[in-house]
Design a protein around this nucleic acid. Structure first.
Length: 500
RNA sequence: GGCGGCGUAGCUCAGUCGGCAAGAGCGCACGGCUCAUAAUCGUGAGGUCGCGGGUUCGAACCCCGCCGCCGCUACCA
């Protein structure tokens, strides 16, 4: 059995989950479900990132401990994922003992190999902002917000010798041209490496909400350096080496473009330093834009995914979120567009196709479904949809996979229109048309199940294939001509409602 | 400033190695149908493929220039 591991970033708990978080997580969920359908061993990891100065400060403002704050926000992410039908295999929190244990082991390994050394960090600090700046952010050497001089601050920190990995990273990129997708992000990362890498300060001594450096208890790790390690923590780096070796490095990290550098430069170098292979692939996606702007807390255009689930329904939301945009570039996200696609794709094309087929089975076949004919004008369309959907699911292109399935649905609606089974006398001709249409519903339901698991199961149940998804085989069961017929249809309300 | 990307029908976008008459979905218009969730089917609109040059038998795809937008350019979750 092949193994497949997909991760989301671990989300920083200074913000409640919004549609942007849901976007990444849903893509990972769909990919995980697709691979489960392929009967691969699947491990889908998500979680929350809980250390760092910002969390400590936020907790202080609220008058609670950082742990209390992270407990409550982490819970909100878990709740949100439950409500979005996210079926993860593990939810990691960086404050858990297993992570701290792994960070200790992983960083100790890097330290022992000589890639972490003590040095002096110099930064620019604005007393009014209470935060650090880098040279390029300053305006005339002054704090850009308060227009006053910044102070030079020094701190003895431990540095990760990123500079020593330049050549190895370049070689790795050269050997793995598909390491990062899309290609533009690969090129950005590559040119960053080529421009020369500096060592990075990876510990802090000015606050203590972090993981203590095992060889120097006066310091804690900088949150990013430690957070990346979550991926190997959860796979069993320290707790289950057998499983770790099975799943790593065959792992895909899905991330938003704002955290490309950490994942594409730091993380592979850290892996090399610790003596393991870098992950197999990093998929970088763009942002959902609302009126051309990134969805964020500060621009007040943040959308709660749970609200959209309430409005459209769970599977509808899942479909609409991934259908709207290819995984990669930024894309516009608007309520009007969601509504339009809900009505046309879901209610009209798919939901109504199911309704009309079952209505005719009811009136012409006494509610007992006919079986599919082995030869059909729809067969080529179905074969094409299966082939194309498979390829696109495998290539992390859900929007394209869905498009190919919808082409089949449209062809089937046209097929019904041409043959008008509602007009014919009960008999072979009517049975054939309906059997073929039921076969399309069977195949389409399987293909959409990663995105719409509940609706897919419901479609199958209504045509008599209860629990069909539990042991369907993608390699054996998607060929044309396998719908057996002979089932009594289950009549029910429309699958998807139109929204006005 | 340096490196890179984008600009294709009203909207959202496809267009692999340059080549059959520039595509899809939605929206819109007209027509058909009435089994179905006022769903569906057919047809259509006529987009200088950002602008100007060039290479080529032939370019949306290659080269040069210009305009507009955007990304990366280190320790910001």
């Amino acid at each position: 059995m092949k193994s497949f591991c997909v991760t989301t970033p671990i989300y920083y708990v200074n913000d409640a989950p919004h549609v942007g978080h849901a976007y990444t997580t849903l893509h990972a969920d769909i990919t995980a479900r697709w691979n489960r359908l392929k009967r691969n061993e699947v491990f889908f990891l998500t979680g929350t990132d809980e250390h760092g100065l910002k969390i400590a400060e936020a907790a202080e403002k609220l008058g609670i401990s950082p742990q209390e704050l992270t407990d409550s926000t982490s819970r909100r992410f878990k709740d949100a994922w439950d409500q979005l039908g996210i079926k993860y295999d593990d939810f990691i929190r960086t404050t858990e003992p297993r992570h701290i244990e792994t960070v200790n082991a992983f960083t100790q390994k890097i330290y022992d190999a000589g890639y972490i050394v003590k040095d002096t960090w110099e930064g620019l600090y604005c007393i009014s902002c209470e935060s650090n700046y880098i040279e390029s952010e300053l305006e005339n050497g002054m704090c850009p917000i308060h227009k006053r001089p910044v102070e030079k601050v020094k701190e003895d920190n431990y540095f990760f010798k990123l500079s020593q990995f330049e050549d190895r990273l370049l070689k790795f990129y050269e050997d793995n041209p598909k390491f990062i997708e899309p290609e533009t992000k690969f090129n950005e990362a590559l040119s960053f490496i080529k421009s020369g890498l500096k060592d990075i300060s990876v510990t802090r001594s000015s606050f203590d909400w972090g993981i203590t450096v095992p060889w120097d208890h006066s310091q804690v790790f900088y949150v990013w350096f430690e957070a990346l390690i979550n991926y190997v923590t959860a796979l069993g780096y320290t707790s289950d080496p057998d499983r770790f070796n099975r799943l790593w490095p065959n792992t895909v990290h899905m991330i938003g473009k704002e955290i490309t550098r950490f994942h594409c430069i730091w993380w592979p170098a850290m892996c090399m330093a610790a003596g393991i292979n870098p992950p197999s692939k990093i998929l970088v996606h763009g942002w959902l834009l609302v009126g051309g702007e990134k969805m964020s807390k500060t621009s007040l255009n943040k959308i709660d995914p749970v609200d959209l689930v309430d409005e459209f329904g769970l599977d509808q939301f899942r479909y609409l979120l991934v259908k709207g945009s290819p995984f990669g570039p930024d894309s516009e996200f608007s309520y009007e567009e969601l509504k339009r696609r809900n009505n046309s794709d879901l209610a009209n094309n798919l939901g109504n196709l199911l309704s009309r087929v079952l209505a005719v089975v009811n009136s012409k076949c006494d509610s007992i479904t006919p079986k599919v004919d082995t030869d059909s004008i729809l067969k080529p369309a179905a074969d094409l949809a299966v082939e194309s959907a498979k390829e696109n699911w495998d290539n992390f292109s859900p929007a394209n996979a869905l498009e190919s399935i919808w082409n089949l649905l449209r062809a089937t609606n046209a097929y019904l229109e041409t043959n008008e089974p509602w007009k014919g006398e009960p008999g072979d001709k009517v049975n054939k048309v309906l059997g073929d249409s039921l076969e399309v519903l069977r195949i389409a339901a399987v293909l959409i199940s990663p995105v719409m698991p509940t609706s897919a199961a419901e479609i199958l149940t209504r045509i008599g294939l209860t629990n069909y998804l539990d042991d369907v085989s993608l390699s054996d069961d998607l060929g044309w001509g396998q719908y057996p017929g002979g089932f009594e249809i289950k009549k029910d309300a429309p699958l998807f409602s139109r929204i006005k």
